[in-house]
Design a protein around this nucleic acid. Structure first.
Ligand SMILES: [Mn+2]
Ligand SMILES: [Mn+2]
Ligand SMILES: [Zn+2]
Ligand SMILES: [Zn+2]
Lengths: 150, 150
DNA sequence: ATTGTAATTGAGACTCATTATCAATTAAAC
DNA sequence: GTTTAATTGATAATGAGTCTCAATTACAAT
Protein backbone atom coordinates (compact mmCIF):
# COMPACT_ATOMS: atom_id res chain seq x y z
CA UNK A 1 0.00 0.00 0.00
CA UNK A 2 1.74 3.14 -1.22
CA UNK A 3 1.31 6.68 0.04
CA UNK A 4 0.30 9.41 -2.31
CA UNK A 5 3.57 11.19 -3.05
CA UNK A 6 3.94 14.45 -1.17
CA UNK A 7 4.24 16.49 -4.36
CA UNK A 8 0.79 15.35 -5.43
CA UNK A 9 -0.64 16.46 -2.13
CA UNK A 10 1.08 19.81 -2.42
CA UNK A 11 -0.17 20.36 -5.92
CA UNK A 12 -3.73 19.18 -5.39
CA UNK A 13 -4.05 21.27 -2.25
CA UNK A 14 -2.70 24.26 -4.09
CA UNK A 15 -5.28 23.72 -6.81
CA UNK A 16 -8.16 23.11 -4.47
CA UNK A 17 -7.44 26.33 -2.60
CA UNK A 18 -7.87 28.18 -5.84
CA UNK A 19 -10.95 26.29 -6.92
CA UNK A 20 -9.02 24.47 -9.60
CA UNK A 21 -9.03 20.80 -10.51
CA UNK A 22 -6.46 18.08 -10.31
CA UNK A 23 -6.93 16.51 -13.75
CA UNK A 24 -5.16 13.53 -15.26
CA UNK A 25 -3.30 15.82 -17.62
CA UNK A 26 -1.96 17.86 -14.73
CA UNK A 27 -1.15 14.71 -12.87
CA UNK A 28 0.85 13.31 -15.79
CA UNK A 29 2.76 16.54 -16.20
CA UNK A 30 3.46 16.76 -12.48
CA UNK A 31 4.83 13.23 -12.48
CA UNK A 32 7.17 13.81 -15.38
CA UNK A 33 8.56 17.02 -13.90
CA UNK A 34 9.07 15.42 -10.52
CA UNK A 35 10.80 12.36 -11.91
CA UNK A 36 13.18 14.45 -13.96
CA UNK A 37 16.57 15.22 -12.58
CA UNK A 38 18.21 17.99 -14.54
CA UNK A 39 17.08 21.14 -16.22
CA UNK A 40 14.35 20.95 -18.82
CA UNK A 41 12.29 23.00 -21.21
CA UNK A 42 8.57 22.75 -21.99
CA UNK A 43 8.97 21.22 -25.45
CA UNK A 44 11.25 18.43 -24.22
CA UNK A 45 8.87 17.70 -21.41
CA UNK A 46 5.98 17.59 -23.84
CA UNK A 47 7.77 15.12 -26.09
CA UNK A 48 8.70 12.89 -23.17
CA UNK A 49 5.13 12.86 -21.97
CA UNK A 50 3.88 11.85 -25.38
CA UNK A 51 6.47 9.10 -25.66
CA UNK A 52 5.42 7.81 -22.27
CA UNK A 53 1.94 7.38 -23.75
CA UNK A 54 0.34 9.91 -21.46
CA UNK A 55 -2.01 12.38 -23.06
CA UNK A 56 -1.48 16.09 -22.60
CA UNK A 57 -1.35 18.83 -25.18
CA UNK A 58 1.43 21.34 -25.57
CA UNK A 59 -0.97 23.98 -24.30
CA UNK A 60 -1.59 22.02 -21.13
CA UNK A 61 2.12 21.51 -20.62
CA UNK A 62 2.69 25.25 -20.75
CA UNK A 63 -0.30 25.96 -18.55
CA UNK A 64 0.68 23.38 -15.97
CA UNK A 65 4.28 24.52 -15.86
CA UNK A 66 3.00 27.96 -14.85
CA UNK A 67 0.94 26.44 -12.08
CA UNK A 68 3.84 24.34 -10.83
CA UNK A 69 5.97 27.47 -10.68
CA UNK A 70 3.31 29.37 -8.80
CA UNK A 71 3.01 26.66 -6.20
CA UNK A 72 6.77 26.34 -5.86
CA UNK A 73 7.29 22.79 -7.06
CA UNK A 74 9.44 23.92 -9.97
CA UNK A 75 11.39 27.06 -10.78
CA UNK A 76 12.51 28.99 -13.79
CA UNK A 77 16.26 28.66 -14.17
CA UNK A 78 16.88 31.01 -17.06
CA UNK A 79 15.62 32.24 -20.39
CA UNK A 80 17.66 31.38 -23.46
CA UNK A 81 17.30 32.14 -27.12
CA UNK A 82 15.73 28.68 -27.45
CA UNK A 83 13.18 29.07 -24.69
CA UNK A 84 12.77 28.89 -20.97
CA UNK A 85 14.59 26.38 -18.78
CA UNK A 86 13.10 25.01 -15.58
CA UNK A 87 14.06 22.65 -12.80
CA UNK A 88 12.36 20.86 -9.98
CA UNK A 89 12.67 22.78 -6.76
CA UNK A 90 10.74 20.40 -4.56
CA UNK A 91 13.35 18.42 -2.62
CA UNK A 92 16.09 20.28 -4.43
CA UNK A 93 17.71 22.89 -2.25
CA UNK A 94 18.58 26.31 -3.57
CA UNK A 95 21.78 26.50 -5.58
CA UNK A 96 23.42 28.56 -8.27
CA UNK A 97 24.97 27.56 -11.59
CA UNK A 98 28.19 27.51 -13.51
CA UNK A 99 27.43 27.12 -17.18
CA UNK A 100 29.98 25.86 -19.68
CA UNK A 101 30.07 27.89 -22.89
CA UNK A 102 31.90 24.98 -24.53
CA UNK A 103 29.54 22.09 -24.00
CA UNK A 104 26.50 23.56 -22.30
CA UNK A 105 26.89 21.48 -19.16
CA UNK A 106 25.85 22.99 -15.83
CA UNK A 107 27.50 22.67 -12.45
CA UNK A 108 25.24 23.26 -9.48
CA UNK A 109 26.86 24.72 -6.40
CA UNK A 110 25.91 26.24 -3.11
CA UNK A 111 27.80 28.53 -0.77
CA UNK A 112 26.56 29.78 2.54
CA UNK A 113 29.14 32.51 2.44
CA UNK A 114 27.73 33.68 -0.86
CA UNK A 115 24.18 33.70 0.43
CA UNK A 116 25.12 35.66 3.51
CA UNK A 117 27.16 38.13 1.53
CA UNK A 118 24.16 38.81 -0.67
CA UNK A 119 22.05 39.48 2.39
CA UNK A 120 24.66 41.98 3.56
CA UNK A 121 24.67 43.71 0.22
CA UNK A 122 20.89 43.98 0.22
CA UNK A 123 20.96 45.45 3.70
CA UNK A 124 23.52 48.00 2.56
CA UNK A 125 21.21 49.09 -0.24
CA UNK A 126 18.02 49.04 1.79
CA UNK A 127 16.75 46.40 -0.59
CA UNK A 128 14.51 43.59 0.58
CA UNK A 129 15.79 40.64 -1.42
CA UNK A 130 13.61 37.61 -1.86
CA UNK A 131 15.22 35.50 -4.58
CA UNK A 132 18.28 35.62 -6.76
CA UNK A 133 19.97 33.97 -9.68
CA UNK A 134 23.71 33.75 -10.11
CA UNK A 135 25.04 32.31 -13.30
CA UNK A 136 28.76 32.01 -13.86
CA UNK A 137 29.69 31.33 -17.47
CA UNK A 138 33.02 29.86 -18.52
CA UNK A 139 34.68 26.51 -19.21
CA UNK A 140 34.26 23.22 -17.43
CA UNK A 141 37.26 20.94 -16.82
CA UNK A 142 36.75 18.92 -19.98
CA UNK A 143 36.43 21.96 -22.19
CA UNK A 144 39.52 23.53 -20.66
CA UNK A 145 41.51 20.49 -21.71
CA UNK A 146 40.09 20.56 -25.21
CA UNK A 147 41.11 24.19 -25.55
CA UNK A 148 44.69 23.43 -24.49
CA UNK A 149 45.02 20.64 -27.05
CA UNK A 150 44.27 23.15 -29.79
CA UNK B 1 37.67 71.30 -33.05
CA UNK B 2 36.31 68.11 -31.56
CA UNK B 3 37.90 64.71 -31.34
CA UNK B 4 36.13 61.71 -32.72
CA UNK B 5 34.66 60.03 -29.65
CA UNK B 6 36.59 57.01 -28.50
CA UNK B 7 33.63 54.69 -28.93
CA UNK B 8 33.49 55.53 -32.60
CA UNK B 9 37.14 54.68 -32.98
CA UNK B 10 36.65 51.40 -31.16
CA UNK B 11 33.68 50.44 -33.29
CA UNK B 12 35.09 51.50 -36.63
CA UNK B 13 38.37 49.72 -35.92
CA UNK B 14 36.48 46.63 -34.91
CA UNK B 15 34.55 46.77 -38.16
CA UNK B 16 37.55 47.46 -40.34
CA UNK B 17 39.40 44.48 -38.88
CA UNK B 18 36.58 42.29 -40.05
CA UNK B 19 36.27 43.93 -43.45
CA UNK B 20 33.02 45.56 -42.46
CA UNK B 21 31.87 49.12 -42.99
CA UNK B 22 31.07 51.98 -40.68
CA UNK B 23 27.81 53.16 -42.23
CA UNK B 24 25.62 56.05 -41.19
CA UNK B 25 23.00 53.64 -39.87
CA UNK B 26 25.56 51.94 -37.64
CA UNK B 27 26.83 55.32 -36.57
CA UNK B 28 23.37 56.51 -35.59
CA UNK B 29 22.71 53.37 -33.61
CA UNK B 30 26.08 53.57 -31.90
CA UNK B 31 25.40 57.15 -30.86
CA UNK B 32 22.02 56.39 -29.39
CA UNK B 33 23.30 53.43 -27.40
CA UNK B 34 26.27 55.40 -26.10
CA UNK B 35 24.19 58.40 -25.07
CA UNK B 36 21.71 56.24 -23.19
CA UNK B 37 22.17 55.80 -19.51
CA UNK B 38 20.07 52.95 -18.26
CA UNK B 39 19.03 49.58 -19.57
CA UNK B 40 17.29 49.37 -22.92
CA UNK B 41 15.75 46.98 -25.38
CA UNK B 42 16.04 46.94 -29.17
CA UNK B 43 12.50 48.10 -29.90
CA UNK B 44 12.77 51.12 -27.60
CA UNK B 45 16.09 52.01 -29.14
CA UNK B 46 14.57 51.72 -32.59
CA UNK B 47 11.71 54.03 -31.70
CA UNK B 48 14.05 56.59 -30.19
CA UNK B 49 16.21 56.54 -33.26
CA UNK B 50 13.22 57.13 -35.49
CA UNK B 51 11.99 59.96 -33.31
CA UNK B 52 15.42 61.54 -33.49
CA UNK B 53 14.96 61.62 -37.24
CA UNK B 54 17.82 59.26 -37.94
CA UNK B 55 17.16 56.53 -40.42
CA UNK B 56 17.75 52.91 -39.50
CA UNK B 57 15.47 49.94 -39.86
CA UNK B 58 14.53 47.56 -37.12
CA UNK B 59 16.65 44.92 -38.84
CA UNK B 60 19.67 47.19 -38.71
CA UNK B 61 19.08 47.94 -35.07
CA UNK B 62 19.10 44.24 -34.26
CA UNK B 63 22.12 43.61 -36.47
CA UNK B 64 24.08 46.49 -35.01
CA UNK B 65 23.26 45.55 -31.43
CA UNK B 66 24.87 42.18 -32.13
CA UNK B 67 27.97 43.85 -33.45
CA UNK B 68 28.18 46.21 -30.48
CA UNK B 69 27.98 43.23 -28.16
CA UNK B 70 30.68 41.40 -30.05
CA UNK B 71 33.03 44.32 -29.83
CA UNK B 72 32.26 44.87 -26.15
CA UNK B 73 30.68 48.30 -26.26
CA UNK B 74 27.38 47.01 -24.92
CA UNK B 75 26.30 43.91 -23.02
CA UNK B 76 23.25 41.77 -22.61
CA UNK B 77 21.80 42.29 -19.17
CA UNK B 78 19.02 39.71 -19.18
CA UNK B 79 16.28 38.11 -21.18
CA UNK B 80 12.71 38.81 -20.16
CA UNK B 81 9.35 37.72 -21.49
CA UNK B 82 9.27 41.02 -23.39
CA UNK B 83 12.66 40.69 -25.01
CA UNK B 84 16.32 41.17 -24.36
CA UNK B 85 17.68 43.99 -22.23
CA UNK B 86 21.06 45.58 -22.89
CA UNK B 87 23.26 48.25 -21.36
CA UNK B 88 26.31 50.21 -22.37
CA UNK B 89 29.45 48.59 -21.02
CA UNK B 90 31.92 51.07 -22.44
CA UNK B 91 32.90 53.36 -19.56
CA UNK B 92 30.55 51.47 -17.28
CA UNK B 93 32.35 49.14 -14.92
CA UNK B 94 31.07 45.67 -14.17
CA UNK B 95 28.25 45.52 -11.65
CA UNK B 96 25.34 43.34 -10.65
CA UNK B 97 21.67 44.15 -10.20
CA UNK B 98 18.92 44.24 -7.65
CA UNK B 99 15.59 44.27 -9.44
CA UNK B 100 12.39 45.47 -7.82
CA UNK B 101 9.42 43.20 -8.46
CA UNK B 102 7.15 46.05 -7.41
CA UNK B 103 8.15 48.84 -9.76
CA UNK B 104 10.73 47.32 -12.07
CA UNK B 105 13.51 49.68 -10.99
CA UNK B 106 17.07 48.38 -10.92
CA UNK B 107 19.82 49.11 -8.42
CA UNK B 108 23.33 48.62 -9.70
CA UNK B 109 25.91 47.52 -7.18
CA UNK B 110 29.43 46.22 -7.03
CA UNK B 111 31.26 44.24 -4.38
CA UNK B 112 34.87 43.20 -4.53
CA UNK B 113 34.21 40.65 -1.86
CA UNK B 114 31.52 39.12 -4.04
CA UNK B 115 33.77 39.00 -7.08
CA UNK B 116 36.59 37.35 -5.15
CA UNK B 117 34.23 34.86 -3.56
CA UNK B 118 33.04 33.81 -6.99
CA UNK B 119 36.60 33.28 -8.09
CA UNK B 120 37.14 31.05 -5.06
CA UNK B 121 34.05 29.06 -5.83
CA UNK B 122 35.14 28.53 -9.42
CA UNK B 123 38.54 27.35 -8.26
CA UNK B 124 36.88 24.88 -5.93
CA UNK B 125 34.93 23.42 -8.84
CA UNK B 126 37.77 23.46 -11.32
CA UNK B 127 35.70 25.80 -13.41
CA UNK B 128 37.28 28.57 -15.46
CA UNK B 129 34.82 31.40 -15.05
CA UNK B 130 34.84 34.27 -17.51
CA UNK B 131 31.64 36.23 -16.90
CA UNK B 132 28.69 36.12 -14.58
CA UNK B 133 25.30 37.62 -13.91
CA UNK B 134 23.83 38.03 -10.47
CA UNK B 135 20.31 39.28 -10.21
CA UNK B 136 18.68 39.77 -6.84
CA UNK B 137 14.94 40.20 -7.00
CA UNK B 138 12.89 41.79 -4.25
CA UNK B 139 11.55 45.16 -3.15
CA UNK B 140 13.16 48.57 -3.32
CA UNK B 141 12.77 51.05 -0.46
CA UNK B 142 9.75 52.78 -2.00
CA UNK B 143 7.91 49.56 -2.68
CA UNK B 144 8.59 48.30 0.84
CA UNK B 145 6.82 51.38 2.22
CA UNK B 146 3.90 50.93 -0.14
CA UNK B 147 3.49 47.36 1.05
CA UNK B 148 3.41 48.43 4.71
CA UNK B 149 0.72 51.03 4.05
CA UNK B 150 -1.55 48.29 2.75
C1' DA C 1 36.25 61.14 -60.75
C1' DT C 2 34.90 56.51 -62.48
C1' DT C 3 34.43 51.96 -61.90
C1' DG C 4 34.21 47.39 -59.82
C1' DT C 5 32.94 44.76 -56.09
C1' DA C 6 31.52 43.18 -52.02
C1' DA C 7 29.11 44.81 -47.86
C1' DT C 8 24.84 46.82 -46.32
C1' DT C 9 20.23 48.15 -46.11
C1' DG C 10 15.17 47.71 -45.44
C1' DA C 11 10.63 45.80 -46.46
C1' DG C 12 8.53 42.07 -45.67
C1' DA C 13 8.44 37.01 -45.23
C1' DC C 14 9.51 33.75 -41.96
C1' DT C 15 10.57 31.14 -37.49
C1' DC C 16 9.64 29.58 -33.22
C1' DA C 17 8.28 30.00 -28.31
C1' DT C 18 4.42 31.12 -26.00
C1' DT C 19 -0.41 32.67 -25.34
C1' DA C 20 -5.30 33.25 -26.59
C1' DT C 21 -9.70 31.38 -28.41
C1' DC C 22 -13.53 28.59 -27.96
C1' DA C 23 -16.41 24.53 -28.65
C1' DA C 24 -16.39 20.10 -26.59
C1' DT C 25 -15.29 17.53 -22.43
C1' DT C 26 -15.02 16.52 -17.60
C1' DA C 27 -14.17 17.01 -12.44
C1' DA C 28 -16.52 17.37 -8.49
C1' DA C 29 -19.99 19.54 -5.52
C1' DC C 30 -24.81 18.92 -4.51
C1' DG D 1 -27.16 11.47 -11.58
C1' DT D 2 -27.47 16.43 -12.45
C1' DT D 3 -25.42 20.76 -12.60
C1' DT D 4 -21.96 23.86 -13.45
C1' DA D 5 -17.82 25.91 -13.84
C1' DA D 6 -13.10 24.48 -14.86
C1' DT D 7 -10.34 22.24 -18.31
C1' DT D 8 -8.76 20.57 -22.55
C1' DG D 9 -6.77 20.68 -27.17
C1' DA D 10 -6.80 22.02 -31.95
C1' DT D 11 -5.79 25.90 -34.02
C1' DA D 12 -5.18 30.82 -34.59
C1' DA D 13 -2.72 34.63 -32.98
C1' DT D 14 1.13 37.12 -31.06
C1' DG D 15 5.65 38.93 -30.81
C1' DA D 16 10.74 38.93 -30.62
C1' DG D 17 14.14 38.02 -33.52
C1' DT D 18 16.11 36.36 -38.01
C1' DC D 19 16.36 35.71 -42.97
C1' DT D 20 15.89 36.98 -47.94
C1' DC D 21 16.99 39.48 -51.73
C1' DA D 22 16.83 43.32 -54.83
C1' DA D 23 18.43 47.90 -54.55
C1' DT D 24 21.88 50.85 -52.55
C1' DT D 25 26.31 52.27 -50.97
C1' DA D 26 31.15 52.32 -49.06
C1' DC D 27 35.52 51.96 -50.45
C1' DA D 28 39.59 51.03 -52.78
C1' DA D 29 41.94 50.53 -57.12
C1' DT D 30 42.45 52.51 -61.33
MN1 LIG E 1 19.96 23.64 -11.19
MN1 LIG F 1 23.25 47.73 -15.22
ZN1 LIG G 1 32.19 22.15 -21.08
ZN1 LIG H 1 10.21 49.19 -6.43
Amino acid sequence: MREKPVQKQVFSRFLKERGQRFTKERSAILEKTMSRNGHFDPETLYIEIRKAGAKASRASVYRTISLLCECGLIEQVRKTEHGTVYERSFGHEHHDHMLCIGCGSAIEFYSDKLERLQEDLCRQQGFQGTTHTLEIRGYCRKCQKKKKQT
